[in-house]
Amino acid sequence: MTNLIDIKNVRHAYKTASGPLPVLDGLTLSVPEGGFVAVVGPSGCGKSTLTKLVAGLMKPDEGEVWLHGERVKSPRSTVGMAFQNPVMLEWRSILKNVMLPLEIVPTKLTKSQQEDRARYLLDLVGLKGFEDKRPSELSGGMRQRASLCRALVHQPDVLILDEPFGALDAFTREDLWQIMHQVKAKEPFTGVLITHDLRESIYLADQVVVLSGRPARTQFTLDIPETGPRDIDMLYTPEAADMLHTLRHQIEIAQGRAPAEDTAA
């Protein structure tokens, strides 16, 4: 089994005024083709940094990042990314914002097909009727959903989502979880999802990785057993409660609030 995303022993530090700040310390992570890995960890541990390394926006100080069996040296157009801060180009309508990647990435779609695609995605995330609005007329959660559409519009093989549902209320969030499952069934991708929401991680991903506190390394990995198509009730089963409990405990260890000795799992 070849891994589509392979992060090998990556080390990275930011240069700051008060000296280097080590953020990632020997982090290893791989995602098989079609896999969806959720990454959780304490705030400020280096999750967003990890996404930027995978996207090729930064080079790690040490270690390697591989995509499709190729070493990542620069960004590539087969990646779709939704940033933690969902900036929109204020001078464009929402529709034009979503269509932006299609202006960069080579595409076979005609102009009207491109527009249909963007409209279809906006409809999917519940933004029908907002196509011609300016980003400043949307709420934070709506901008986040538009940013998700922008990440998906060019049908990327690799999808990197950095807390894509953070600004959403619980109900919209659950809707979007289901939509993510639909999208994945229709347009398979290999994904990395950064999240703070443990329920989200076990509902969406097939593997959850807990990062230690800064500098981050892989502290714990939990495989979510495959039980066919998921629906939201899955979160209310005893198995889910067990998984959530385990993950919670691991986060406490990562935060330094629980001793690491009893990492029996």
């Binding site: 926006l57 001078w91 932006l100």
Partner: peptide, 24 residues
Amino acid sequence: EYRDILRSLGASQTTIFWKIALPK
């Protein structure tokens, strides 16, 4: 963040200038 939207897709510096830096 503005630059990164386009940079993550492999856009050139010139494209980033015309599509983002200039209008902004």
